[in-house]
Write a protein that binds this DNA or RNA. Structure first.
Length: 426
RNA sequence: GGAGGGGUGGCAGAGCGGUUGAAUGCACUGGUCUUGAAAACCAGCAUGUCGAGAGGCAUCCAGGGUUCGAAUCCCUGCCCCUCCGCCA
């Protein structure tokens, strides 16, 4: 959520800058609602003040043993009027809230303009696309004979866009998770957390998935309450800070969390239908930081570096992209995507997304810290990034480490997590 | 799942339906005193919002209700504690 005062006073600027994100703000409607809100709110509060003072004087009169009946009936009229005003104010406020909860974050000045991923800006790259002396296969062909990656059985068990792993591939998948979490804890100073994989709508509003993107989520409907499967650990982990005021000594907070992620992938029909690139369920190791406002841009660079470190340790070629306005997520002010080279597809594919949200999520969540300079609670800045998406990392390892005989080498750094195994025969 | 008890400021802990946004203690901040510190004493010390300011409004777990007036009464939900049952 944007700062309401900034939104009100700098409406043209906001509207202009949101165009970078292809968002059209209905300025006229917003302004007229805002004007009415102010009028009605002032009137309502005046009535409340009137009622309060009169009620207090009734209290005094009663204490003095005076007759309070005539006073009571006078206030009753104010009460009726007040109820009407309050109802009116409530309606206006609800409309305004709906608008402000649906306005995306403003892109940072360093975000390139553009409409889709083709307008993203190359920041740097690491390694060269892997060379093969033979025809490189994709992960589906590589595993089709051994069936250690089995899509069909998962479709039988659940539905399309699910997969199953067996034997050494299941183990490699698990090894990747352990490896990533260990690196972030031991080398990058993150605290490991375990959190619920099912969350309430408040949490999803906090991070920005709701109210606008309910269709992307798996919802668990129940007579008592609706809950949602998490689309990313960002949701539960960032919401640790919701409605909290942290002492300055607790900031920054850096969390690493492995979790499954569940996405409905509504609207991606026919996209990435081959293999396990795009799944309803996948594992991810997520980094989340809560920092002082002045530190968040440095933190974004550091966090991106932490994700890159994983790719480098695995020896996987990648590039870093600065997402353009049109490709930027709802809550993000700036995002770096890490794209790993996939020989099977002959292209770079997203494997991580690292974002600075500034105070956008913190305002929705009321996630604060006590600034020793002001002595006041102030909004934190939040960031997060995948480090990495595990399913896609598994694909990248399979495709980049494949050998002419169809086997796959295990990257050096993972071998200790695989009980010394160096090759997987497929 | 059954039976009780409870949720008040950073913490502890008061609060007959009416000058209670909330006593008191601790913690914290500033000051006096002291060579310095401790102690003592004085002062300050919740959050949001509107306002240039004075000040107004809202908030005592959350949401409804009763009332001229609710931290205080009623209903619902959530959470915590104790006992019984069940269970990984």
């Amino acid at each position: 959520m944007l700062d309401p005062r900034f939104l009100r006073t700098e409406l043209e600027t906001v509207t202009e800058r949101l165009k970078v994100k292809n968002f059209d703000l209905d300025v006229a409607r917003f302004e007229s609602l805002e004007t009415r809100r102010k009028e009605v709110q002032v009137a309502t509060e005046a009535l409340q003040a009137e009622r309060n003072t009169r009620s207090k004087s009734i209290g005094k009169a009663k204490a003095n043993g005076e007759d309070i009946e005539p006073l009571k009936s006078a206030v009753a009229e104010i009460g009726d009027q007040l109820n009407k005003q309050q109802e009116e104010l409530r309606k206006i406020q609800a409309e305004l809230d709906e608008i402000s909860w649906s306005i995306p974050n403003i892109p940072d000045a360093s975000v390139p303009t553009g409409t889709d991923e083709s307008d993203n800006e190359l920041v740097r790259s690491w390694g060269d696309p892997t060379n093969f002396t033979f025809d490189a296969k994709d992960h589906v062909d590589l595993t089709s004979e051994s069936k250690l990656l089995d899509i069909e059985v998962a479709v039988k068990i659940a539905h399309s866009r699910f997969m199953s792993l067996r034997g050494p591939l299941a183990r490699l998948h698990r090894a990747l998770i352990q490896f990533m979490v260990d690196v972030h804890v031991q080398e990058h100073d993150y605290e490991e957390v375990y959190v619920p994989y099912i969350v309430n709508d408040e949490s999803l509003r906090g991070t920005g998935q709701l109210p606008k993107f309910e269709a992307d989520l798996f919802k668990i409907q129940n007579e008592e309450r609706d809950l949602y499967l998490i689309p990313t650990a960002e949701v539960p982990v960032t919401n640790i800070a919701r409605n909290e005021i942290f002492p300055a000594s607790d900031i920054p907070k850096r969390f690493v969390c492995h979790s499954p992620c569940f996405r409905s992938e509504a609207g991606s029909y026919g996209k990435d239908t081959r293999g396990m690139i795009r799944q309803h369920q996948f594992e991810k190791v997520e980094l989340v930081q809560m920092v002082r406002p002045e530190d968040s841009w440095d933190a974004l660079e550091a966090l991106t570096g932490h994700a890159e470190n994983i790719l480098q340790k695995l020896g996987l070629p990648y590039r870093v992209m600065n997402l353009c306005g049109g490709d930027l997520g709802f809550s993000a002010a700036k995002t770096y995507d890490l794209e790993v080279w996939l020989p099977g597809q002959g292209q770079y594919r997203e494997i991580s997304s690292c974002s600075n949200f500034l105070d956008f999520q913190a305002r929705r969540m009321q996630a604060r810290w006590r600034n020793p300079d002001s002595g006041k609670p102030e909004l934190l800045h939040t960031l997060n990034g995948s480090a990495l998406a595990v399913g896609r990392t598994l694909i990248a390892v399979l495709e980049n480490y494949q050998q002419a005989d169809g086997s796959v080498q295990i990257p050096q750094i993972l071998q200790s997590y695989m009980g010394g195994l160096t090759v997987i025969d497929l």
